[in-house]
């Protein structure tokens, strides 16, 4: 189910003193199985952009095409769209409301009018996918830790079993361990065939997860391309005050010192390999 945003512009509160152009002429395409990352400084329009992907916001100008159909205001089509495109908002733990974790995760599937058995199956699958222990399901979501609440909220969206999942800063505010395990779980979901879109400040998370990146700046697409294409545009990223992953920074320094390493290195393991190869190359060179 490809999602295409074509020349999308969005203005908040048009015609009032609070008028604010949040997006201008943004074009983005998401293919099936993609893992798209969206980065940009605070206020650059990331959250506004992703809300167009499941019909929570409609473009002031331009259009959004999902699966060949333009997203409009038809109620039934919208319900369908929101079922297929799951959306995890920033700080999703603030949306929990049920008495038990189970009931909260089941809220979405219940709105789909599924039978009890299917609901139970989905709740179990969703809570396993985000690593929630079984004994938590009967507890109140309000007595869990922040990290666990975040997982419950993500499970609540997963349980809709859409084919696309959008996450707005899913790892912000998590401790390093919680972050690492969530990153793993998101990767597993994508590998199982779910199309993913992730908004994040963390270039490290981007390096680990996504295959394509869109960089927003003041509501416009500043850079776009594969992860490697984007992360090697160091000057452009710097002018937007965005970091590159730490490993990439190390490679950059090594290059400055004359070590012939590649720049498109995203993870620590790739870094080790690249460094080893470079050192081996030097040794071979010396022994010749």
């Amino acid at each position: 189910m490809p999602i295409a945003l074509e020349n999308v512009s969005y203005t908040y509160a048009p015609g009032t003193p609070w008028e604010h152009v949040a997006l201008s002429e943004v074009t983005v395409r998401i293919e099936d199985g993609d893992f798209l990352g969206i980065v940009g400084p605070t206020g650059s329009g990331k959250s506004t952009l992703v809300q167009h992907m499941n019909g929570l916001l409609f473009p002031s100008d331009g259009r959004v095409v999902v699966d060949g159909d333009e997203v409009g205001s038809d109620r039934k089509a919208l319900r369908d769209l929101r079922r297929k495109v799951g959306m995890v908002f920033q700080y999703p733990e603030h949306q929990l409301f049920e008495e038990t974790v189970w009931a909260d995760i089941a809220f979405g599937p219940k709105n789909l009018d599924l039978d009890e058995e299917e609901i139970a199956r989905r709740v179990r699958w969703a809570s396993e996918s985000v690593g929630l222990p079984e004994d938590i399901l009967e507890r109140s979501p309000f007595e869990l830790s922040g990290g666990q609440m975040r997982r419950v909220a993500i499970a609540g969206v997963l349980a809709m079993q859409g084919s696309v999942l959008i996450l707005d800063e899913p790892t912000s505010g998590l401790d390093p361990r919680g972050r690492a395990s969530l990153v793993e779980q998101l990767r597993a979901l994508n590998q199982a065939g779910m199309t993913m879109v992730m908004v994040s400040h963390s270039m490290e998370d981007m390096a680990l997860l996504v295959n394509r990146i869109v960089v927003l700046s003041e509501g416009r697409v500043a850079l776009a391309g594969t992860k490697r294409e984007v992360f090697t545009q160091l000057e452009a990223l710097e002018t937007l005050s965005l970091d590159v992953p730490r490993v990439t920074q190390v490679m950059l320094r090594l290059r400055g010192e004359g070590v012939p390493v590649p720049l498109d290195v995203m993870t620590v393991n790739e870094g080790i390999d690249a460094l080893a190869a470079a050192l081996r190359g030097e040794k071979d060179h010396a022994s010749q």
Partner: peptide
Amino acid sequence: DEAERIMKAQMARGAD
């Protein structure tokens, strides 16, 4: 703002 955000989040889970 908060109400609007929560409303959208629940709408994304099929709330009406």
